[in-house]
Structure formats: structure tokens, C-alpha cells
């Protein structure tokens, strides 16, 4: 019996894989919950810290007074200008800002990828797909888009939170262009973290907890660098640098993820 098998081009394979992944990401509640959290979080942070700004708490044992310092400016939730950036600072405004989301990426990527393996859906994918490259590229792109939406959600939440809390929107020396460039740089850094977290998820497969733990540890190592690389007064150099770094990490760790999927059992 004569059997005919058509050649399956890389473009066709990647396009169908991307469609599946986007379909999955946008038809499950998880992405919307994550984006919702990212939208609400800055509103709560800005409103609550403004309400508590200047309030004094006294330690009953030592008698030491602590004055609560809130945000002076809405854009502090996005970043600080390079001259004021202190990566080692552990204050409320330096910790409770958009950079927290780099830890959230670990959760989004970890859950999204592990779900494929836990549900057994990965078997359906890999039975009809011999090339793991399609999967790696598609998942990286989809997770990047999902995480970018989380960052945009946080940005919108910051603007709303600032308006509700009555905080100034003074961009200072950064200017509007600086804020835009800062956000773009942060999106470039998202690619770095997505590449890293996907490699962890590919190694952990169905073990969501393992993927999240590995990603969180890796994120902690890079976390201190993020405010320095993506200050509020970022320029085009920062944006290009972050996207180039993101591209290198995604390609490099994508190759590692590809090798992991090729050389290890998928079930």
C-alpha cells in the first residue's frame, strides 16, 4: 500500500504550535487572574501607603519610633532615576514596585508549562511533533506575551493607584520618554526571566513546585541588577541592551531546554 507523507515545514509547525499556545493561554482563567492581581496590587500599595504615610509606630519593648514613609511620586512604583537607585536599599518603595513581578513570571511560566505535562497534554503534542524546537520557541513567545501583559497591568494599576491616592505624576528629570523607555527596558528583562524560567520548567516538567523554586532562586540572583539596568530615566541604550540580553538568554537557554526535552523522557 502506497503511503504519502507531506513535508512539514518549520514555519507551518511553529505557526500551529503558537496558535495552540495562545489559544491555551487566553482561554484559561490563570492568565486573567495573574493580570488582575498585577492590576490591583499597585492600586492597593499606593493607596494604603499614602494613607499610612507619616504615621508613627512605637516598639513597646525598645521604645524606638518608626515613621512610615509612603511613595512621594506615582512613578516610584515603576522605578527610580539612576542617580537615586540603590540596589541594596530594602525600603518599602524599593521593594514594593514593578520589579516584584519578575518573581511572578516564575509562577506564570511554571504553571503554564507544568500543566502540559501534568494533564498529559504534552503527550498529545509530542506524539505528533518530533521537533522540540517548535515547542520551546512557541512557549517562550507565549509566556513572554503573558508576562508583558502582567507588566502592562501593573503599569495601568500604578496610574490608577496614583490618581486614587492623589500622588503627583511628576516625571522629573526622566520625562515621559524616560518612563516609556523604562517600561520597554523592563519588558526586555522579561525576556531574560522568561528564558530562564522556561529552562527551569523544561527540566522540572510536571513538577510545578520545582520549576517555581528553581526560577525564584535564579530570579533572586538577578533581582538586584534590575533597578540599575532599568532606571526610570532609561534611554534607548537600556532598551536595546535589555532586549539583546533577553534574546541571548532566550536563544541560549532555549537551546538548553531543547536538549533537555530531546534527551530526557517526557512522561
Amino acid at each position: 500500500m502506497e503511503m504519502r507523507f507531506e513535508k512539514s515545514s518549520f514555519g507551518k509547525r511553529l505557526s500551529s504550535m503558537l496558535k495552540v499556545d495562545f489559544c491555551r493561554m487566553f482561554t484559561t482563567r490563570f492568565l486573567y487572574i495573574m493580570v488582575g492581581i498585577c492590576l490591583v496590587m499597585p492600586i492597593l500599595i499606593l493607596v494604603m501607603t499614602t494613607m499610612m504615610d507619616g504615621s508613627v509606630t512605637v516598639d513597646p519593648q525598645t521604645g524606638v519610633e518608626t515613621v512610615m514613609e509612603g511613595f512621594d511620586n506615582t512613578w516610584q512604583a515603576i522605578g527610580t532615576v539612576s542617580s537615586e537607585t540603590n540596589p541594596m536599599a530594602m525600603g518599602l518603595t524599593t521593594m514594593c514596585n514593578i520589579n516584584m513581578l519578575y518573581f511572578f513570571i516564575a509562577v506564570l511560566v511554571g504553571v503554564f508549562v507544568a500543566d502540559d505535562f501534568r494533564s498529559g497534554y504534552a503527550k498529545n503534542i509530542f506524539t505528533v511533533r518530533a521537533k522540540k524546537t517548535d515547542y520551546v520557541i512557541s512557549k517562550t513567545v507565549t509566556c513572554f506575551v503573558g508576562c508583558a501583559l502582567m507588566f502592562l497591568g501593573f503599569f495601568v494599576g500604578t496610574v490608577l493607584g496614583g490618581a486614587i491616592a492623589g500622588l503627583p505624576f511628576d516625571t522629573g528629570s526622566a520625562g515621559i520618554a524616560g518612563v516609556v523607555m523604562c517600561m520597554l527596558s523592563k519588558l526586555g528583562m522579561v525576556a531574560v526571566f522568561v528564558g530562564m524560567d522556561f529552562a527551569a520548567s523544561a527540566a522540572a516538567k510536571g513538577r510545578t513546585w520545582m520549576s517555581i523554586v528553581i526560577s525564584m532562586v535564579a530570579a533572586m540572583l538577578l533581582y538586584m541588577m534590575v533597578p540599575m539596568i532599568t532606571p526610570l530615566d532609561s534611554g534607548i541604550v537600556n532598551v536595546i541592551g535589555c532586549f539583546v540580553a533577553g534574546g541571548i538568554v532566550c536563544v541560549g537557554l532555549g537551546a538548553v531546554s531543547n536538549a533537555i526535552l530531546k534527551k530526557t523522557s517526557l512522561v
Partner: peptide
Amino acid sequence: AGVRVRVGA
């Protein structure tokens, strides 16, 4: 890839 796309399991 051409043959695998016609395998069901």
C-alpha cells in the same frame, strides 16, 4: 516530522 504528524496515540 512528516510521518509523526500522522501518528495518533
